[in-house]
Amino acid sequence: MKFWTFSLLFFCVLSLSSCIELIDDIKINNDGSGTLKYTVNLSSSKVKVTSILALDSVNGIRVPSISELNERIADFQKKLDTKPGISNVTIESDFENFVFKLRCDFTSVTALQTAIKEVVRDELRDKNVPELDAIWLNWDGQKLVRSIPEISVKKTTEFQQEDIVLLKQGTYTSITRFERPVDHYDNPSAQISANKMNVMIKTNPHALSQNTSLLDNIIYLTPLK
């Protein structure tokens, strides 16, 4: 099954689930390397997700079995792990609570972006997706510029209105961590942790689909000592 079929099914599941929790957590070291953690938590809708997985298809899209899903996840993990600058890729799949966690280390944000683009391109039939060329992470040693990958926003706009409405009930948490204190940041919705080294923005998937700049932020760090 191809990437978009999975994506579509995933969003079908999201739209049919009353609640989804997404956490993206990225740690940037002083040398530009770091760790990405991405968590999808569907546990508050597990009865619905289980009932969907018991079906043959949803909205005309075939529902894969858990073993098929596991195969695809393992395939994704393998592909990502072979990309230059990416290491220690792990994906934890909890099919009892429907919590999925991706974790990987990267040598630079450029390596991370390139790896993700290549894996996604590899899964796509249409290799020519200009949105994938966009840069959504930029690190110069002093500040980090973050935004949302344009392609994910583009897919969101294709959802039917009734599906988007259901996304309102979910949460999206974006955390950016550093090795030294943050000096200031641009996004007024962001919060800084007590130790001054972490920035968090909380929103919901629906709000994000309506205003894609909600998570845009430029975070300035204190100078290296």
Binding site: E21, I23, T39, N41, S43, S44, K46, V47, N97, V99, T173, I175, R177, S193, A194, N195, M197, N198, M200
Partner: peptide, 14 residues
């Protein structure tokens, strides 16, 4: 009645 996974954040470090 079912159960779900909930995340709680430490204010010091998130």
């Amino acid at each position: 009645k079912t159960t779900k996974i909930e995340y709680s954040y430490d204010e010091e470090t998130y």
